[in-house]
Simulated scan of single mutants.
Amino acid sequence: MKDLQIETIINQNRKPIPEADQLGFGQYFTDHMFLMDYTEGQGWHDPRIVPYQPLQLDPSCMVFHYAQTVFEGMKAYLTKDEEVLLFRPDQNFKRLNNSNDRLCIPHIDEEFALEALKQLIKLDRDWIPSAPGTSLYIRPFIISTEPHLGVHPSHNYLFIIILSPVGSYYKEGLNPVKIAVEKNYVRTVVGGTGTAKTGGNYASSLKAQEESGKVGYSQVLWLDGRENKYIEEVGSMNIFFKVNGEVITPALNGSILAGITRDSIIQLLKHWNVPVTERKISMDEVIQAYRDGLLEEAFGTGTAAVISPIGEFFYQDEKMVVNNGEIGKLSKELYDTLTGIQNGIKQDPFGWSVKL
Results as ranks from 00 to 15, higher is better:
Lys2Pro: 09
Leu4Gln: 13
Gln5Asp: 15
Ile6Leu: 11
Ile9Pro: 00
Ile10Lys: 11
Asn13Lys: 12
Lys15Gln: 08
Pro18Asp: 03
Gly26His: 05
Tyr28Gly: 04
Leu35Ala: 06
Thr39Gln: 13
Gln42Arg: 06
Gln42Leu: 11
Trp44Met: 10
Trp44Lys: 07
Ile49Thr: 02
Ile49His: 03
Val50Met: 05
Val50Phe: 01
Pro51Asp: 12
Pro54Phe: 00
Gln56Gly: 10
Gln56Trp: 01
Phe64Ser: 10
Gln68Gly: 02
Gln68Ser: 02
Val70Lys: 07
Met74Gly: 09
Met74Leu: 15
Leu78Trp: 08
Leu86Pro: 10
Phe87Gly: 00
Pro89Asn: 14
Asp90Tyr: 14
Arg95Ile: 04
Asn97Trp: 09
Leu103Pro: 06
Ile108Thr: 10
Asp109Glu: 13
Phe112Asp: 02
Leu114Ile: 15
Glu115Ala: 06
Ala116Ser: 11
Leu117Val: 06
Lys118Asn: 08
Gln119Met: 12
Leu123Lys: 10
Asp124Phe: 05
Ser130Tyr: 05
Gly133Arg: 07
Ile138Asn: 05
Ile143Leu: 06
Thr145Ile: 04
Pro153Asn: 06
Pro153Trp: 01
His155Ile: 06
Tyr157Arg: 09
Ile160Ala: 10
Ile161Val: 15
Ile162Arg: 03
Ile162Ala: 04
Tyr169Leu: 08
Tyr170Glu: 08
Glu172Ser: 15
Gly173Thr: 08
Leu174Met: 11
Ile179Lys: 04
Asn184Tyr: 10
Val186Ile: 14
Thr188Met: 00
Gly192Cys: 09
Thr193Cys: 11
Thr195Asp: 01
Thr198Glu: 04
Gly199Tyr: 06
Gly200Pro: 02
Val215Pro: 00
Ser218Phe: 00
Gln219Ala: 06
Leu221Glu: 03
Tyr230Ala: 09
Glu232Cys: 08
Gly235Lys: 00
Gly235Gln: 03
Ser236Ala: 13
Met237Ile: 03
Phe240Arg: 07
Lys242Phe: 02
Lys242Arg: 15
Glu246Phe: 08
Val247Pro: 01
Val247Ile: 14
Ile248Asp: 11
Ala251Asn: 12
Lys270Thr: 12
Trp272Lys: 10
Asn273Val: 11
Glu278Arg: 12
Lys280Arg: 12
Met283Tyr: 08
Val286Gly: 03
Tyr290Arg: 09
Asp292Trp: 11
Glu297Ser: 02
Gly300Asp: 06
Thr303Ala: 11
Thr303Phe: 12
Ala304Lys: 09
Val306Asn: 03
Pro309Ile: 01
Glu312Met: 10
Gln316Arg: 13
Asp317Asn: 15
Lys319Asn: 14
Met320His: 01
Asn323Lys: 09
Asn323His: 14
Asn324Tyr: 12
Gly325Phe: 12
Lys332Thr: 04
Glu333Asp: 13
Asn343Tyr: 09
Asp348Trp: 05
Asp348Met: 07
Gly351Asn: 07
Gly351Val: 03
Ser353Gly: 02
Val354Tyr: 13
